[in-house]
């Protein structure tokens, strides 16, 4: 198939209607390969809903969503989309509480996802090395054999980011990674994401303006389900309509 677009992610005129309520309203957005983008917007703007559409959790009422120019995201299920290379971090950290930190990463490491293949699975050296490397990167090396339920909130957030990396996705969707973190953790997280974005596309939703400033990337402002403004943080902060939306209520 001829790619319709060169963009890695291409959303065109996406609308999502819940019982007559428009959570997304003709939203259009493109993300390029290895681009990092910050998405901001007031509560209920539709940021999480947009991620739901991209990852197959919610089907749009109208519009087109393409990945790598050829995959129609509106027809695939969550597992297919994840296998294409789209990883997602949830707004509230979701890790597998009863599994160890190591096993959480093991389940995420890119590998055969079929049920039968995993019955015969044996621990391989390269998988172990990959997990070592990830543990190092998310600073959980000492917690390797602890249950994920015993981690602090910030550690869980990082574990989930580690699980994202383990999947080796081409596109990462990260929903409010700094929520509930200390200032130091927030700064560290921004640095980690910037580092990741050197090789992969990253879309970050965040309310914390200091965090968005640290990221230092192009910003998209969502409001009532559509794009209100796009540009550098300074540009959008100076935009009158953005000021109105954020301060006018």
């Amino acid at each position: 198939m001829e790619p319709v677009t060169q963009s890695l992610l291409y959303l065109d005129d996406i609308s999502v209607v819940f019982d007559g309520f428009r959570a997304l309203n003709k939203l259009s957005l493109t993300i390029e390969e290895a681009e990092m983008r910050a998405i901001i917007g007031p509560n209920g703007a539709g940021k999480t809903t947009m991620m739901d559409v991209i990852t197959g959790k919610t089907r749009p009422t109208a519009g087109e969503a393409l990945f790598a120019g050829i995959y129609d995201l509106t027809t695939l299920d969550e597992a297919d989309i994840a296998q294409l290379g789209i990883g997602r971090k949830f707004q509230t950290p979701t890790v597998f509480d009863m599994h160890t930190v190591e096993d959480n990463l093991l389940l995420a490491v890119k590998a055969d996802r079929r049920a039968f293949a995993n019955i015969y699975w044996r621990r391989r050296a390269h998988e172990r090395a990959r997990i070592d490397e990830l543990l190092e990167r998310i600073r959980l090396k000492d917690q390797r054999f602890r249950k994920a339920s015993e981690l602090s909130h910030g550690q869980k957030q990082w574990l989930e980011i580690g699980m994202l990396l383990a999947q080796e996705p081409r596109l990462l969707l990260v929903d409010e990674p700094a929520a509930g973190m200390t200032d130091q953790e927030t700064a560290d997280t921004a640095e980690l994401l910037r580092d990741i974005a050197k090789t992969r596309a990253v879309v970050v939703v965040e309310h914390d303006m200091q965090f968005v400033r640290d990221l230092d990337v192009k910003v998209t402002v969502l409001h009532e389900g559509s794009v209100l403004a796009e540009g550098s943080l300074d540009q959008v902060s100076a935009n009158e309509r953005v000021i109105e939306v954020y301060l006018g209520r």
């Binding site: 969550e78 890790v95 597998f96 009863m98 599994h99």
Partner: peptide, 19 residues
Amino acid sequence: KVLVAVRDAESRTRFLGYK
């Protein structure tokens, strides 16, 4: 391990690519 993951966080498991 995947079964237990499904038990504890089913949709998370889907977003990791498991059917």
